[in-house]
Design a protein around this nucleic acid. Structure first.
Lengths: 343, 343
DNA sequence: TTGTAAGCGTTATCAG
DNA sequence: CTGATAACGCTTACAA
């Protein structure tokens, strides 16, 4: 059989008592006689009664659901984040609505509204590459829905955020390249309107400056996917003098670079050293294995959810904006090895 | 400011008209005067009015939300599936609640109940490795919530399913190994209680039999993660005669095998050829690149969502159980190359 | 110890 | 053209 779910009314009718009695019995209210409780619970079990979360939510203005706005699910980092969020939510009885924007501003605004419609208790956001306006996010706040950013923070909105130290990670990555002997380092960067893009670029620049290397603007390319690498790598490798190091804004870009370098008959790291950012599983699968900056997505997701729960429980404005900044860790592997002696 | 979201009542009060008029005006009911509509819409815009999906859901018994039960989000295949589901849902105005079970039966039952509580309009499921009872899923059906399986089907429940042809894929993979000269092929399998585990194993066995090779039960290991490979690979490579081919139930297991073979000083594919299942991005990143069976997660998710929408719209029982079986494609790469001449 | 009724936000059915 | 009112499932004063 496949009928509609049982309600408190069904139980009341079956037992010839009122719905309020049933309601109280189900939540073990002290006023209700043991006998009645017994009967109610038995019937509830028999009917597979489950409270209607929609009704509960309507009554209490709490949906017990949180929303996640994420650029693309199919990336190790982002799926790790979701996994962390999901586990933290499960532990605390929340459900998670996941919305992917596919990096589109328009879609980001749509899903933000959908989450508002559903009266989610809070939202975790990592903004899309193309988002430059953020009214859709302040709209959520204006409606009493707390926001927490992870990874891709929006600088114009004052709220909690959980990130790795992008600046420092980039600095470490770049300095490591210098320490293994690179002097002509290319940075493959993400768009500047993403804070991570900007910070990682600044980290790169500063590392060069601090080591008395000239920052050549022509050594910085907007290039953050393997497709873009495909497009631009030829031109980059043809430059004179040829770059001897790459710091890529993420692992998949770094690996695409390695593959093209190898295809061009050059060697990593002997001719060109490469560092990525993220430390996904691919970093140990590619060959040579990839030196990269660790970025623990699971932890980031988990902590972001903890922040959000605080805000949900203590009131959206009760807390001053907090940042959780994970210290980046440089994981050295083959793509910068052999050059270590130069250090 | 961050107040509670505006309601239809707020608009009514502000305009000094009744809520029913507002409701009708907002949905462009023909009865309402252009003038009133104008005023209502203007006020709605000004207040950022958004209909309360909880109230709507309560009234209509439709939450406009679907649930997804998935073993682990952090796998390329599963995250691709979610991405496909998510896109299909977005196109049709549905929201997606994602629940990961971490392969635990107990958690699977919990999330199934949570989805029932939220009165989701339908559920997409890929069962956990450890699930052998399925009352929690029939519970959903009994409550009028349609179910569609993807990838990890439950054989005991009669409903739609979207999968690749696991049997055939495994058959092709194994036969390919034979065709490149392997005669002593190990199969690293998933648990038998998973239909995919069983079918892939049967495909392997049948391919051997059809090619006059003995199926040696000792050549079949329960080993479906890189951790388990770590544990068992030593023993397997020490066997005499040494295996000359591996068919692994998924890519990450296959790649772990390749890495260990290389570490043991043997060559892939010259000494041992390896085939995986899934064709994730890692298959082209590892070295040698991995021959594997394509399994398009995005398509599977997208189609599963289409099936589910049909069932939601036409009534849960109106349709006889349909299976969408994607034809597997063997993608030949280096991990079985060079041996091609033997074909 | 139990029942009645109002209300959460919305829509549909009746009346005007 | 517009307004009451009931209902969706549930909780919670307030009565009894």
């Amino acid at each position: 059989m496949s009928g509609a779910p049982a309600t408190i009314k069904d139980i009341a009718r079956l037992l010839g008592i009122s719905v309020s009695t049933v309601s109280r019995a189900l939540k073990d209210h002290p006023d209700i006689s043991a006998d009645t409780k017994e009967k109610v619970n038995e019937t509830a079990r028999r009917l597979n009664y489950r409270p209607n979360a929609l009704a509960l939510g309507l009554k209490s203005s709490k949906s017990n659901t949180i929303g996640v706005i994420i650029p693309e699910i199919v990336h190790f980092f982002f799926s790790s984040v979701i996994s962390g969020i999901e586990d933290a939510a499960y532990e605390t009885g929340y459900n998670v609505m996941v919305c992917q924007t596919n990096e589109m501003y328009e879609r980001e605004t749509m899903v933000a509204k959908a989450l508002l419609d559903h009266r989610v208790d809070g939202v975790l956001v990592s903004v899309a590459k193309t988002s430059t306006k953020f009214d859709h996010l302040t709209l959520l706040q204006d409606n009493g829905i707390p926001l927490v950013f992870f990874d891709r923070v929006c600088a114009f909105i004052e709220t909690d955020a959980v990130v790795v130290d992008d600046y420092k990670g980039a600095y470490m990555a770049s300095e490591h390249l210098i320490s293994v002997g690179c002097r002509n380092i290319v940075h493959l960067s993400a768009p500047e309107n993403l804070l991570i893009g900007k910070l990682r670029k600044v980290g790169y620049c500063r590392a060069l400056e601090d080591n008395n290397l000239q920052v050549d603007p022509y050594n910085i390319y907007l290039c953050d996917t393997s497709e873009k690498v495909e497009e631009k790598i030829g031109r980059i490798l043809d430059r004179h003098p040829r770059p001897d190091g790459f710091f890529a804004v993420n692992d998949s870009t770094a690996i695409a670079v390695i593959q093209h370098i190898k295809k061009a008959g050059l060697k990593v790291p002997e001719d060109i050293a490469v560092v990525g950012f993220g430390d996904g599983p691919v970093a140990t699968i590619c060959s040579p294995t990839l030196t990269t900056i660790e970025q623990n997505g699971y932890e980031i997701g988990y902590e972001a959810m903890r922040f959000l729960l605080d805000r949900i429980n203590k009131g959206i404005t009760a807390i001053v904006a907090r940042k959780k900044v994970f210290a980046p860790v440089l994981v050295k592997r083959e793509s910068t090895a052999r050059r270590f002696e130069n250090r």
